[in-house]
Design a protein around this nucleic acid. Structure first.
Lengths: 240, 240
DNA sequence: CTCACTTCTTACTTAGGAGTAAGTTTACTG
DNA sequence: CAGTAAACTTACTCCTAAGTAAGAAGTGAG
């Protein structure tokens, strides 16, 4: 804006700028519809620079993946380290994960849902199908809990939460099953029920799991309220 | 095979053949890298036919999505209907889901992971990152359980199962959070812990959830052993 | 100043694939 | 055996976007 002529910038810095913009564009458009020209322009640079520094479109995307995966992993690990019991560490890690993907939505989209590659109509179709499944599962959850525990009065929001857990877990277990051909769907479903059924009642009753007393550290130096979440780690300081 | 010259075939049938092949190709290559020419050729037909019947590449893909989503939903619903309590219905539905995606992998890939759109190297990178996360979470799970419940001896396979549930649920809750901006990551993480922590012990102890006695149906007409899972519904008989 | 090195640009080439115009063959119908 | 409608083909057009060749301009060292 202020500087009319574009300042020359050392390679390391320019690379990060390119990756910054690439993450945005890949998140918005998806891999194939994203054009290197657009990324270059947003980075205030011309296309051949991108090829000089990152080799190819694929190289560029790989660089994005690596950097963003590293940042997310770091956020998780940093949070999970330090606190005492594994239970606490897991909780802190999860919390940091959710915080990170909230802050850095683009990053998450690039790492995860490459569905945005598809056109509006197609994305909508996918979303609609998923929503239908969620609604169905949430309904079952609500009925089941109402029947089992009488007075709990599951709210819609909470049943929806449980439905997301179930559907997400089911998605993910699909991969797990590929590496365990001996397992039958029946057994997998039983295991999932086993793992989740009791907890559903708690969640739907509005209970919140509370971190237990840290067994080895009698009093922590941390603030008593928020665990670690707000201090989302910034990028591991790449720019000089 | 036997007929040398290509037999003419009515539109309804040909459409289904095209969609059959499209599902395969989209699953293998992903949306953009898939070429309509290839799909047409596999369907034993030339490209303009595809455009005549399905309008566009997008229309073709939408047709695939609709048909496959419908089949999967039907599989779930058919299984969930009939059995008594919601708990049972949920279990039967999950079981049918896992059975369906095992049988119809292409279908699932098209509905779910459009990541195969990306090149070999990129897919590998994504898979690697995910595996790393899984390993980390599985480690925490193992430690946590070992500490909490002394003698349970969580096997690698079981810890891995729990890790998949957690990571998949976390993935999915990302979407849920978007529609609940008031929720903090901290609260979401607590809820997830609440829902899952107790169940982890059971799963890692090797326990399997057993379907309870159906409260309203004293004796079902079904076979007592398998619920509904093996009778995966075939396509809802589209071809005339 | 000038040599050498890095940053950066303009202006291409090229390939692949979506979509179409126009015509051809098969098969049923009276 | 027409005649007609549906099934089907060949042979294109055209556009987008990846990737590159060749050189210009800023920058620091002697």
């Amino acid at each position: 804006m202020s500087d009319k002529r574009r300042r020359r910038v050392p390679r390391q810095v320019r690379e990060q700028q390119i990756i910054d913009m690439a993450v945005q564009v890949f998140a918005k458009r998806g891999y194939h519809p994203a054009s290197v020209d657009e990324i270059a322009e947003l980075a205030g640079i011309s296309k051949p620079m991108v090829y000089l520094y990152l080799d190819s479109k694929e190289g560029l995307f790989l660089a994005c993946l690596r950097r963003e995966a590293e940042r997310l992993a770091t956020a998780f690990q940093k949070a999970a380290r330090g606190v005492g019991s594994p239970e606490m560490r897991l909780w802190a890690g999860l919390s940091a994960f959710f915080a990170y993907v909230t802050e850095h939505r683009d990053s998450w989209v690039v790492l995860h849902r490459q569905t945005s590659e598809l056109s509006e109509a197609i994305t909508e179709e996918v979303a609609r199908a998923r929503r239908a499944v969620m609604a169905e599962v949430a309904g079952l959850v609500r009925d089941g809990i109402a029947e089992a525990a009488g007075p709990v009065r599951p709210g819609d929001e909470e049943a929806d939460f449980v439905a997301h857990v179930l559907v997400g877990a089911a998605d993910s277990l699909t991969d797990w099953m590929e590496r365990h051909p001996g397992e039958t769907p029946d057994r997998v479903a039983r295991r999932l029920m086993n793992m989740v059924w009791v907890g559903m009642r708690n969640v739907l009753g509005g209970e919140l799991w509370e971190p237990p007393e840290p067994p080895h550290a009698p009093e922590g130096p941390e603030a008593p309220d928020a665990p670690h979440a707000p201090d989302v780690p910034g990028p591991p300081s790449v720019e000089g």
